[in-house]
Write a protein that binds this DNA or RNA. Structure first.
Lengths: 259, 259
DNA sequence: CAGTGGTCTAGACCACTGA
DNA sequence: CAGTGGTCTAGACCACTGA
């Protein structure tokens, strides 16, 4: 059973922070292993002699650090660390497309997790400003919009939205829910747009509530944002892919010359 | 004056989330500009007819997203956005070193902010495990350790620690606090280690309390972590640079071929 | 000093989980 | 059903800010 100390009135930290510190210490020392259940709010109230909101505030602190996850009706648990996906910059190599694998599936193969894709939606809509700039079209020009969510071992890890100009991919299997072997990049090459290079713009921020829901992450877990633009051999931008990834699940690798 | 709506009892979202959503909307639409003061808790209670803890919970939500900063005794303010540094993958180009500029100074020139470096410390110490692996030396091998903090317009934006093998840079100006024009990469090339390529591993997480202090960021602001390894033309790893950046201040750009 | 956010109490009703 | 966390109320005392 977990041993916790007591609140020290001489400690300058308020009680809720002291409680949070004791629980954090238990997690970091391994006294509470990943997946383990924390004492319930009722148990914390009893043990420390505090009101419920004070116990809750301590737990809120740990949620904010991403250390624990609260599950309604079940309890609060130490967050299990997700398997980290290392994304190398050769993940869009033509060899994979030729082998009939979309980038996400090729990675899963390499890293040994079970890949999944759901919430696929394909539509046409006006291009948002930032997207239009990258595609070098007027804002609000109608483009193909492909949304989807990626799962690793059944857990959502990334949401992605691709934008493609209608003259590039209109009427091709890119507009189908299942674009077929090799994914949309393979279909773009089928349509005569041989891919030459990509740029990626990487940032990080806290997720919006919608993103938190879609990625099933608690408050206190940041997201990595990656905006990728694909260029064909003519130098034309043929796709912009806007992705939001659960940060703890990713490590992005890039390789570049010293020139 | 800021116009806010009312709580909708038919809305499935609880009142505190509705209030948070209205405030978020005001911030994102520009109704509340960066630096602007949010309505006080008392004003929110009055306007929405809720208890104080409900108003506070709405504000907590926005703090967790890093959108606002609470200042005790003053109020809650929309977080002013720091100038974003776009880091292109040509930032270590030899042309800059030849021109006598270290990478950070070259960027500042381009982006038009006032660069600064402080808290420089140079020492020798045992290589931590992850660093030793990247340098391909035994763990705990003595290496040169260079720490420093970077500032943009006087505000800290990045802390960085470089590790270099003693056989590569021992006794060179790399061990001086000021390594001279072009920075340590120029000195490595002077010492015969012509740089060939870099790899960067990018991730994001919440900062530790020490990192929060060094970067002067509040809770609710994530950091980007970048571990860069420099390779010379012999294929040897000659430096590993471990950096922690305030996420809102950065956008990293990478360019890679479709192969 | 008045106004602000920080912390805390002691209660209430609710929705969700799993035996 | 008992146990859990989610939301909310109406109060209290406090420390900090700035006029």
């Amino acid at each position: 059973m977990l041993q916790l100390g007591e609140i020290d009135r001489a400690d300058p930290r308020p009680p809720y922070r002291q409680i949070a510190a004791m629980l954090r210490e238990a997690i970091e020392s391994g006294g509470l292993e990943p997946g383990a259940k924390l004492p319930s709010e009722a148990a914390l109230m009893e043990h420390f002699g505090v009101a419920r909101m004070t116990a809750r505030q301590a737990i809120q602190e740990l949620r904010g650090e991403g250390l624990v996850i609260a599950e309604h009706g079940r309890g609060v648990f130490v967050r299990p660390m997700p398997p980290v996906r290392r994304l190398a910059s050769d993940r869009f190599a033509r060899a994979h497309r030729a082998a009939g694998k979309a980038a996400f599936l090729a990675e899963a193969d390499k890293a040994g997790y079970q890949p999944g894709v759901d919430r696929i939606r394909v539509a046409r809509a006006g291009a948002p400003k930032g997207i239009a700039e990258r595609l070098r079209v007027e804002a609000e020009t109608e483009v193909i919009v492909r949304e989807r969510r990626y799962l690793a071992n059944g857990r959502p890890v990334e949401i992605a939205t691709s934008y493609l100009p209608v003259p590039v991919a209109g009427g091709t299997p890119v507009e189908d829910v299942d674009p077929g072997p090799g994914g949309i990049y393979a279909r773009l090459e089928d349509a005569g747009h041989t891919l030459e290079r990509f740029t990626e713009e990487v940032g990080a921020r806290m997720p919006t509530p919608d993103e938190r829901n879609a990625l099933e992450i608690g408050p206190g877990v940041p997201v990595l944002t990656v905006v990728r633009t694909a260029f064909d051999t003519e130098g034309a931008a043929v796709e912009v892919c806007d992705t939001v990834k659960a940060a703890p699940a990713y490590l992005l690798e890039y390789d570049f010359p010293a020139r």
